[in-house]
């Protein structure tokens, strides 16, 4: 997948690049408005990550240009501003998602995956990882073609793990994914532990391989060789 990252903070560029390239994505970086403008006009991307406040320009104007070019790229705004006006305006301009900083890299990755799914398959698709098949539209999961009944949170966790497979996902990232800004307590780690335990049990019951590894103290890793 070819991704353009428009972001002026060097350290954040490095992190995102490193994380997304682990999966074999190609990442190009633009640090300011004019470079971004150039790259948008010259190349095609699957996904464009745009920061709103940029040196010599606004990311919102770049979104206008992307849409003007009738680019098929999915656009995610990654902004530190978290300003409601920008969010509404950005989405109105045609951005597909809005992820306020700071975010976990795993969250960004899962948003990108979800966006690409929506874009490329018009939402009609299956996610297949070995014996696991997920139908996102119906929020249903099959293991070896047998339906696995998951709770809403177990389903969200499974999708998140698969989006970040072969990566360690921290408990904080999971808590924020499940509870958003309301993840205000540390004891939600116990709940995550329970949900993951139940999820794993339900998958194993249908003779699924045990992909979920617990990384002691940190979180989990959905490990699979495809």
């Amino acid at each position: 997948m070819k991704i353009l990252l428009i972001e002026d903070e060097i350290e954040l560029q490095k992190s995102i690049k490193q994380y997304l390239e682990m999966e074999g994505n190609v990442l190009e970086i633009a640090s300011d408005y004019s470079k971004a403008e150039q790259k948008i006009s010259l190349y095609d991307y699957d996904c464009i990550l745009v920061d709103i406040t940029l040196p010599n320009g606004s990311g919102l104007d770049l979104i206008k240009e992307i849409k003007l070019k009738k680019s098929k790229a999915g656009v995610i705004i990654i902004s530190a501003k978290n300003s409601l006006d920008d969010k509404i305006y950005g989405l109105d301009l045609g951005a597909d998602d809005y992820l306020p900083k700071p975010f976990h890299l795993s969250e960004l990755n899962s948003r990108i995956k979800a966006l690409i799914r929506r874009k490329n398959f018009d939402g009609n698709l299956e996610i297949i990882v070995n014996e696991i098949k997920i139908l996102p539209n119906e929020r249903s999961v099959f293991v070896n073609d047998k339906n696995v009944i998951l709770t809403s949170k177990e389903y969200d966790l499974l999708l998140y793990f698969i989006a970040n497979k072969n990566r360690v996902v921290s408990k904080n990232a999971l808590a924020e994914h499940l509870w958003g800004d309301n993840a205000d307590r540390l004891d939600n780690f116990d709940f995550i532990y329970n949900h993951v335990k139940n999820l794993r049990k339900k998958l194993l019951e249908k003779k699924c391989e045990d992909y979920l590894q617990t990384i002691y103290g940190i979180g989990y890793n959905f490990k699979t060789q495809e």
Binding site: E11, L12, S15, A80, N82, K101, P102, I218, G219
Partner: peptide, 28 residues
Amino acid sequence: TENASHEIQTPLAVIKSKVDLLIQSENL
């Protein structure tokens, strides 16, 4: 408010992303 938000959120985003990368390393 917006500037303060921007200024604080960006370094926080850096720390967060570095932690996310750090936990990927094997044999901690």
